[in-house]
Amino acid sequence: MSDELTGPGTQTRRALLAGAGAVGVTVVLTACGTGDDDALDGTGSSPSAGGAPAPSGSAGAPAEGGGGAALAKKSDIPVGGGKIFAEQQVVVTQPTEGEFKAFSSICTHQQCPVTGVDGGTINCSCHFSKFSVADGSVKGGPARKPLPEQKIAVDGDNIVLA
């Protein structure tokens, strides 16, 4: 049996099979992902990408120094709980009366959006990670990194991204 395909200008069988194998490996590796929350450093940056921010795909905070539109009224955020603002990718919490905090609403485990705030935790329903409403720290895995804090300001009765 010959190593070459018949016809003018054709590749060798070996080259053809090697190319097909490389494509198959690439597809498998792309589909698998790392499954490791070390892929991002908790700030939306990939250490292997030179610290460049990961694309968010939706509106983020306003330019620095410009108080943006109000996210919520202070009375909208329950004490010991919080509210998720999906478009801005932020969750605002009120751990104690009058104290407001904000964190990324993207889970540090595999970048699913968090889905609820209940019982003093910010919860991700993808893999059931839980984060503290007070400081974003991990209260239950598989996440190992806290939610990154976001800057907000209280302007009268309104809570705005800072």
Rank of each mutant, 00 (worst) to 15 (best):
S105E: 10
G66T: 14
A15K: 11
H127I: 13
F103V: 05
A22L: 15
A61V: 03
P148G: 09
G141C: 10
P146I: 08
V23C: 11
F103N: 05
A31L: 11
G141T: 11
L71S: 02
T26R: 04
I77T: 00
L29C: 12
A15E: 14
P47L: 00
A63I: 12
A69H: 13
G140F: 13
G57P: 08
N123L: 10
G82H: 09
V79P: 05
E87T: 13
K73N: 03
E64N: 06
K145R: 13
S132E: 01
V138E: 01
D38M: 09
N123I: 03
V23K: 01
A162Y: 09
P142T: 11
C32A: 07
G21W: 14
A59H: 10
F128R: 14
K139H: 04
L16R: 04
A86C: 02
A59S: 11
A59L: 12
P8M: 15
T121D: 13
L147K: 12
G33N: 01
P55K: 09
T30K: 12
P62A: 11
G156A: 03
K101W: 02
T34W: 06
G82N: 03
Q89W: 10
D37A: 02
Q94H: 12
Q11G: 05
G42D: 00
V28P: 00
G119D: 14
P55E: 03
D157P: 04
K101S: 05
V92M: 14
C112E: 02
A153E: 15
D76W: 08
E64G: 07
D135Y: 03
P95E: 05
